[in-house]
Design a protein around this nucleic acid. Structure first.
Length: 764
RNA sequence: UGGGGGAUCGUCUAAUGGCAGGACCGCAGACUCUGAAUCUGCUUAUCUAGGUUCGAAUCCUAGUCCCCCAGCCA
């Protein structure tokens, strides 16, 4: 597939940074796994994003092991991560980085924080710290050690590092604010004592930095510009910035952005749960082909390209989403479709005797590996009196739309002959156990001289030469789409997720190499297991079945839990809300008088009064002669939007200028549309609105207001957009908006109503 | 309950005041030596209620629902 990378909110941010020359317009990202488990398909989204962004912006991406917690981490995981990232196509800059390599630097910076009075050693117990942190409703309370003096803190910290204290005796905490609404900011822990062997730094450190302290520093030290992580770290960003700001200055100055992690139906993605599956032997290791781990997916026969396509298909956004497993399956099939040679194999053999075929005759048919392009090579496939067909391809009681074999019907055996079923053999249970057929010997290769076309073409193998090989058939690991939604996910394990069977393959397949991909025609895509296959004895994994539009509706339609039903009518009616605001105005007699004096709607005034600054602006500008109703509307609906998070006083505009602005609007010198266009710039630049509007060419000129100008704009639009005009004439009223917009851009400042009327006249 | 995020077809995702678009799934048809692939067509969406505007998914107000945060994990 290899589609061009999509744009999304992160590329928007980077585009803006590059345009503004932030960090020298450079882009350096990083993929920072903790080596405490195997990478899974969720990580592949992050890998594709981080490495993809670097490639897209001619930047680089680091691979960094975030190894700050020695008790859960291991070199085996480091190796698996390196292998998996490389397999997926991640090309990291330089050597693999390790957070543990920065321990010395991080410690120096911690000493700096202590010296600056920004961090202190706390000696409370775990429970005390937890209790004193407070909760969502309760402020935290200061530690009794919060005001230790710098020399004591420094001494304690150095002795922590020297290994003089037991685990848990002390911690280093940032001194921020125990009453902070964001609990992460309530004096977060920076270091804890942990006498543990680290897979890399060995026994060199008895203290280890916490994620919130270490991660921003890792980014800063490596010169990361855009530090991309998942949504659950949004609250951590405030602390990330605190650490950056109190240890810097850093150039580049890294910024953290969060996107929605990948959730896939019918599987679990947390490392803890995957580890549990492995440790409890509920699966056959990290690389069990049922696992969503990259190792498992790879072993199943899913390619890196399919995974990259999938990441692209899913996109990057901030919505919490649960991706349909069908999208993954689409990417897998799409990739394998182009990649695979076609071979013949039978999963559930039904013996067939070709009664008119000589007993000992074996014909070697030359069949192309690629039916769509025979020039790409071929192999010999034997055909004889005794064949095996797929059991499902015969029906004793064929339904009306049955296209395959039944008594009295003729089908084509792929690449061989047409055969007609003459009768069946029954076993002691009365089940069909073999078929008697006659071949039309004039249809060799699969074409009849008379041009007749059987309804179906079936796969088959020659019974005597067929190679019996083990095959592993996989199904989804869990029986429900969201196994970890509530309760114990293990109870939802699909007991039929692995079926070990025997597949009868054409003889050529006996020579398949480990890691060969094939399509077994009409069955699916199969992959020779890289570990279990031996020379001359492949073991097959069914990567995925073919799309099956014939499958029974019952198995085809999944009953999927829908999202929460859309809420019914809002509990608070608009009327109630309006009454509520109006009452607030009445309660304030001064406001009520103001409303009365200028005949302002009380609910609207009440809403605006929520922001005292805007109310003051309103009253002052009215005092200066502004139209009260207009001022109210603009303040509430437009200024508020253009302001976003800023406050009115943070802008360079004053009441006099605002009054002038309203005057322009009222006089029609500045059309509503032009005024809205002007607003954002004016709010940042300030100054005389008329002057700025003139500068930007937004002022309505006398020319623009003339009938001639309006007619000219309409004429121009009609000439430029004939298709849209035609559709409008054909009755597509929505096109009027597009045409009007275009005309408005030409005749700046013209009255939309007049323009609209003129446009309507022109197209009639 | 405090703080931080989010809400667009069944699913994922676009549309930065101007034609709600694409993909997956599904359905129908064409084609077919794979009931596959391919091709064509079709169905289906802006959380609710008000407001601003010539025009709102987008701006304003209020509300509803969902997710994350109270580890000496990351």
């Amino acid at each position: 597939m290899n589609v061009a990378p999509r744009s999304h909110f992160i590329t928007d941010i980077i585009d803006a940074d590059v345009a503004a020359g932030t960090n020298g317009a450079l882009v350096r990202t990083r993929f920072p796994p903790e080596p405490n488990g195997y990478l899974h398909i969720g990580h592949s989204k992050s890998i594709a994003l981080n490495f993809g962004l670097a490639a897209q912006y001619q930047g680089v991406c680091n691979l960094r092991m975030d190894d700050t917690n020695p008790v859960t981490e291991d070199v085996d995981y480091v190796q698996s991560i390196e292998r998996d990232v490389a397999w997926l196509g991640g090309r990291w800059d330089g050597e693999i980085r390790y957070a543990s390599d920065y321990f010395e630097k991080m410690f120096e910076l911690a000493e700096g924080l202590v010296t600056a009075g920004k961090a202190y050693v706390d000696s409370q117990s775990v429970e005390e710290i937890r209790n004193n942190r407070g909760d969502f409703n309760r402020h935290g309370t200061d530690s009794p050690h919060r005001n230790r003096l710098v020399p004591e803190n420094l001494d304690l910290l150095r002795r922590m590092r020297a290994g003089q204290f037991a685990d848990g005796a002390h911690v280093l905490r940032a001194k921020i604010d125990m009453a902070h609404p964001n609990v992460l900011m309530r004096d977060p822990l920076l270091y804890r004592i942990r006498h543990a062997h680290h897979h890399r730094s060995g026994d060199g450190w008895p203290i280890y930095p916490m994620y919130d302290y270490a991660h921003p520093l890792e980014d800063a030290i490596e010169g990361i510009t855009h530090s991309i992580c998942t949504l659950e770290f949004e609250s951590n960003r405030e602390l990330y910035d605190w650490v950056i700001d109190h240890t810097g200055p850093w150039q580049p100055r890294p910024r953290q952005y969060e996107f929605a992690r990948l959730s896939l139906g019918y599987t679990v993605m947390s490392k803890r749960k995957l580890l549990q599956l492995v440790q409890d032997k509920l699966v056959d290791g990290w690389d069990d082909p049922r696992m969503p781990t990259l190792a498992g997916l790879r072993r199943r026969g899913i390619t890196a390209q399919a995974l990259r396509d999938f990441a692209e298909l899913v996109g990057v956004a901030k919505n919490n989403s649960l991706v349909d497993i069908g999208k993954l399956e689409f990417c897998i099939r799409q990739d394998l479709e182009k990649r695979c040679q076609r071979a013949l194999a039978v999963l559930q053999p039904l013996p067939v005797v070709v009664t008119n075929w000589p007993d000992d005759m074996v014909e070697q048919l030359e069949l192309p590996w690629w039916p769509t392009d025979p020039s790409l090579g071929s192999r010999k496939v034997p055909f004889s009196k005794h064949l095996l067909l797929e059991r499902d391809d015969f029906s004793a009681n064929p339904p009306s739309d049955w296209k395959r074999l039944a008594v009295g019907r003729e089908v084509r055996l792929f690449g061989a002959y047409f055969v007609r079923c003459d009768g069946v053999e029954l076993d002691e249970n009365g089940q069909v156990c073999a078929l008697r057929c006659t071949a039309d010997l004039h249809t060799k290769g699969g074409t009849a001289a008379d041009g007749r076309q059987p309804a179906a073409t079936l796969h088959w193998v020659d019974a005597r030469s067929a190679h019996a090989a083990p095959v592993h058939l996989y199904d989804r690991l869990f029986t429900v789409e969201q196994p970890d939604a509530d309760g114990d996910f293990v109870q939802f394990l699909n007991s039929d997720s692995l079926q070990i069977a025997t597949v009868m393959t054409e003889p050529a397949l006996a020579q398949a190499n480990a890691q060969d991909h094939f399509q077994f025609m009409r069955l699916g895509f199969f992959f020779a297991d890289p570990l279990r296959s031996l020379p001359g004895a492949p073991v097959w994994n069914r990567t995925i079945g073919l799309r099956d539009t014939w499958a029974k509706p019952a198995t085809k339609t999944e009953s999927r839990p829908n999202r929460a039903p859309k809420p019914a009518v809002a509990t608070t009616s608009a009327v109630e809300t309006a009454v509520h605001w109006a009452e607030k105005v009445d309660a304030d007699s001064q406001l009520a008088q103001f409303a009365q004096a200028h005949s302002l709607p009380k609910p609207a005034l009440g809403r605006l009064a929520q922001d005292p600054e805007k109310l003051a602006f309103l009253q002052a500008s009215v005092a200066l002669g502004a139209d009260a109703e207009l001022a109210l509307r603009w303040l509430q609906n437009e200024v508020a939007g253009a302001l976003a998070a800023r406050s009115l006083s943070a802008t360079p505009i004053d009441v006099r200028q605002f009054t002038a602005f309203l005057g322009l609007v009222r006089a029609g010198t500045l059309s509503t549309a032009a005024a809205k266009q002007l607003l954002p710039q004016w709010l940042t630049r300030g100054g005389d609105p008329a002057q700025l509007a003139a500068e930007l060419g937004l002022l309505a000129t006398d020319d623009a207001a003339t009938d001639a100008a309006v007619e000219a704009a309409v004429a121009q639009v009609v000439a430029q957009m004939p298709r849209e005009v035609a559709r409008l004439r054909a009755g597509e009223a929505k096109l009027l908006g597009a045409l009007l917009g275009a005309a408005l851009r030409i005749a700046k400042g013209a009255d939309p109503q007049r323009l609209r009327a003129a446009l309507l006249r022109a197209v009639q």
